[in-house]
Each structure stands twice: as structure tokens, then as C-alpha cells.
């Protein structure tokens, strides 16, 4: 085991799959010579060669569409899009073809590929660099959607994503790349899809989150602990497939649920969770299910971004309100 930040954990996982599976290739803009805008592919081209770690033209639809063909022809492509806000040109390939080929051909052709995309706010970059639109993908049938929160999960989920027989959208929390450090196995331990993890155990309230919000949720939960409110903190890890059982099991114990997501509020993933909780556990609830989310605004630029991203204060306030039953 070695202590690594989240970006290093991903680099290690990519190195591992490139070393152990000759069918894997990495492709994207600037992934080779410079190691990617966040250096996640740093050193991989030098080690595995330009035929397997491929710098492409600036063309997201081309990258993802080519990866689709490669996957059908037997490779395991791992495509990188530089930011979630730059993925939209590739969206047609994802929605119209990648997510559908298995069904369109009734299993005859499949697209086992991974699309890695950094997402979320927090680095003060230009417009389009702060998106949390994971719900666009969770709303699309035929995609698995993975959002790790910790270095070990980032590495472990990436191994599982590469081995998965279906297309995986792999969203990486930008602001956790270097902020979070943790023990990561060498090689990393695979992490199964559809298994949420309890990051903190408590009996008063269930806080459900994923990805970049998890560290802030844990900080909020620590503050709440000092004032006597003990929270179960669930990190979903994969949104599709969803471990709703873990959520319901916890809510059955606590009777209260607060969902924290960075994405826009309307039709965000929190809305799906809230609906599932009330469908299955309404009579166990002591308070309405609460949502702490980004707003239905464009993510504000750097100077006003803090108004958008759920703050620890907003999370704490939502939990306190839920504890009062309102």
C-alpha cells in the first residue's frame, strides 16, 4: 500500500491495466506527451508507446466515436475528455450509438469502453470547466455511471470499469485530484459496481452523496457530530447501477434522509434518490427527504462559484432542519 492522491491513484490504475491487458488503449487530447491536462496519464505514453497511449486531434465526437469502433473490433479503449463541459460534442455518439449498440444488435455487438471525464467545480477555471451534469448520463439507458470519491475507489472502480462488458462513463472529481490522499493498493484492489459504502456510521440521519461532494459531506457530518447529531454517510460510488438497498437500509434505521449533489437541482440524481426513498420508505420517514444541490443556474464563474456549490454550511443547515422534522 502506498499513500497517493486521487490523480496518482488513477495513473497507477491505468498503468496497471495497460500493463496487464494488451487490448487496452488510452486515447484523447494531450494524453500522451503532456500526460493530460490533469496529468492523470502522465508517463503512460513513454512507458506503453504512442500506439497505445494516443494523442488525438481536438475532436471529442471523433475520439469517442473511434473508441466505439475500436471496442466493437475487440479493443478496450479508455477515452479521455478533458472536461465534462467539453464532452457535449461527443454526447450524440454516447446517446445514439455507444449506449444502444448492445440492444440494437441484441448482444451481437457490444461496446466495452470507458470514457474518463473530469467533472465538477473548484479550480477556478474558465466557463465550461465546472460542470456536474452526470444526470445527462444517468438518464440515458445503457450506460454505467461511476463517480469515485477517494483515491482507492478511483483506482479500484477504474479497474472494474475497464473489465466491464458495457460502456462506462467515469467521472473524476477535479477538486479531489490533488486534495485527497489515501492508501492505494499496488496493484489496486478492484471495487465492484453497485455497492455503496458507508463512510461514517450514525443513527440519526442518512446523508447520501457521491464524488466531489463526499469530503465536504464528511466535514459537515463531523461538525454535526460535535453538536450531537450522528449521521450515516453513504457514498454511492456508482449511480448506475445504484445500490438503493444500502440507502433504504440506512434510512430504515435513521428515518431521515439528506441528499447532497453538486449538479443542477431539477431532474438531478438527488431527485431520483428522493423519489426512490419515498416510494420504498415513506412510512419510515420522520421528516421530508431533503436535497442540497447546485442550482438551476449556469455554474457561476470563479468569483461567485461558492454560491453554487453546496457548502458545508448548507449541508449542516439541511441536516439540522431535517432533524427538526421540517
Amino acid at each position: 500500500m502506498a499513500e497517493q492522491n486521487l490523480a496518482q491513484a488513477l495513473t497507477g490504475a491505468l498503468d496497471h491495466v495497460l500493463s496487464t491487458d494488451p487490448g487496452t488503449i488510452v486515447l484523447g487530447e494531450d494524453v500522451g506527451l503532456t500526460g493530460g491536462v490533469f496529468r492523470v496519464t502522465d508517463g503512460l505514453q513513454a512507458k506503453h508507446g504512442p500506439e497505445r497511449v494516443i494523442d488525438t486531434p481536438v475532436a471529442e465526437s471523433g475520439i469517442v466515436g473511434a473508441a466505439f469502433g475500436m471496442a466493437i473490433a475487440g479493443l478496450r479503449p479508455i477515452a479521455e475528455i478533458q472536461f465534462l463541459g467539453f464532452a457535449y460534442p461527443a454526447f450524440d455518439q454516447v446517446v445514439s450509438h455507444i449506449s444502444r449498440i448492445r440492444n440494437r444488435s441484441r448482444h451481437r455487438f457490444t461496446a466495452p469502453l470507458v470514457i474518463r471525464i473530469p467533472y465538477g467545480a473548484g479550480i477556478g477555471a474558465a466557463e465550461h470547466h465546472s460542470e456536474s451534469t452526470e444526470a445527462l448520463f444517468t438518464h440515458t439507458p445503457g450506460l454505467k455511471v461511476v463517480i469515485p470519491a477517494t483515491p482507492a475507489d478511483a483506482a479500484g472502480l477504474l479497474l472494474t470499469a475497464v473489465a466491464d462488458p458495457d460502456p462506462v462513463i467515469f467521472l473524476e472529481p477535479i477538486r479531489s485530484y490533488r486534495r485527497l490522499r489515501g492508501e492505494v493498493g499496488d496493484p489496486p484492489e478492484p471495487v465492484a459496481f453497485g455497492e455503496a459504502v458507508l463512510r461514517q456510521r450514525g443513527s440519526d440521519v442518512t446523508i447520501i452523496s457521491y464524488g466531489a461532494m463526499v469530503p465536504d459531506v464528511l466535514e459537515a457530518a463531523a461538525q454535526l457530530g460535535h453538536t450531537g447529531t450522528q449521521a450515516d454517510v453513504i457514498d454511492l460510488r456508482t449511480l448506475v447501477p445504484l445500490d438503493i438497498e444500502a440507502v433504504l437500509e440506512s434510512v430504515a434505521r435513521t428515518g431521515r434522509a439528506v441528499i447532497v449533489q453538486e449538479g443542477h437541482r431539477t431532474c438531478g440524481f438527488a431527485a431520483e434518490l428522493a423519489a426512490s426513498i419515498q416510494e420504498n420508505a415513506l412510512y419510515l420517514l420522520e421528516a421530508p427527504v431533503a436535497r442540497v444541490t447546485g442550482w438551476d443556474t449556469v455554474v457561476p464563474l470563479r468569483r461567485a462559484e461558492h454560491h453554487y456549490v453546496p457548502s458545508i454550511g448548507r449541508i449542516v443547515a439541511a441536516v439540522e432542519s431535517t432533524m427538526r422534522g421540517v
Partner: peptide, 19 residues
């Protein structure tokens, strides 16, 4: 859909050559 499929052929051919 019109147009999106041409790049699939590129990926297919590219992958064959790669292998």
C-alpha cells in the same frame, strides 16, 4: 442517424490494424 457512423468505421479499421 445521419453522419455519426462514419467514425465508427475509422475505429474498427484502426483497431484491426492495431491488432
Amino acid at each position: 442517424t445521419v453522419g455519426a457512423h462514419m467514425i465508427h468505421a475509422v475505429g474498427l479499421g484502426w483497431a484491426e490494424a492495431h491488432q
